[in-house]
Design a protein around this nucleic acid. Structure first.
Lengths: 132, 132
DNA sequence: ACGTCTCTTTACGTTAACGTCATGGTCACC
DNA sequence: GGTGACCATGACGTTAACGTAAAGAGACGT
């Protein structure tokens, strides 16, 4: 028993979110912390899920999409049909991510070229003004 | 004169957006089409900008951020101070994008591992049921 | 007992990025 | 000269993802 249950405040500091955010995620059934009386206690599982949620957000997934992805990580005892559906969804998502990475690659490349051009432009401006 | 001014409807079809979206972008000063009487006419510049806007959106930039980035592409006659500021902003953004790509890479990797695990899990389930 | 934290729930407010009418002008076509 | 088709400008509605304020319970120090 690794005894690492954290209060809401501890969670907020560790993951840099507000209490409201955590309660919001709970309302959306993304996390389900334990209760000690009234107070929420976030165990290991909740912490791991929150980490995944924040990861997902950084890649532009909506909370609803993230909720579905979480099912992949925490399967448990579902029926296979349901699982397969989730799995298929994940496969799609993965290919979307690869597609996105490809686009990101070319965008970065173009962007770097553009930046180089911008740098030259600024250099030109500076030269001109020095010459006056 | 390449005479490729398009109406709002033509733009919508070509870029798969609604008229409302184009007017909205205009209100936010992201595009400024010409006018023929009352009607909007989108020239080459507007088309190029729209393309960039949609690109930016796919990478999670907000419209406001995109507006700033567009200044980098269409500089014109600004003062150097302003330019340099914009340039610096772009450099930051580029490094953010590279960072994002790195994260994306590891996420894809983890995700693939997880998917493999999920596939095995499903396979197990199937085997069990077949055995019953 | 009192004040002060930290937690709780409930509920209304906010921002971005449009969607969705409602209303009205203009032009070609029949 | 009416009737669509396409355009315009308001102006109000919508969704996601929280923010923020109100009101109250429980534990703790003095």
């Amino acid at each position: 028993m690794t005894e690492d249950r954290k209060t809401i405040r501890q969670m907020c500091e560790e993951f840099d979110v507000t209490p409201r955010t955590l309660r919001f995620y709970e309302a959306k059934e993304l996390i389900s912390p334990l209760r000690e009386g009234q107070k929420r206690l976030y165990g290991k599982r909740s912490q791991a899920r929150l980490k995944l949620i924040l990861q997902g957000k950084r890649f532009g997934f909506s909370l609803e999409e993230i909720r579905q992805l979480l099912d992949l990580y925490y399967i448990g005892d579902q029926r296979r049909t349901q699982m397969t559906k989730t799995y298929d969804l994940a496969v799609e998502r993965l290919s979307a991510m690869k597609q996105q990475r490809a686009e990101l690659d070319t965008t970065i490349a173009e962007f770097e070229k553009q930046l180089q051009w911008g740098a030259n432009f600024i250099a030109d401006l500076t030269a001109k003004e020095a010459a006056e």
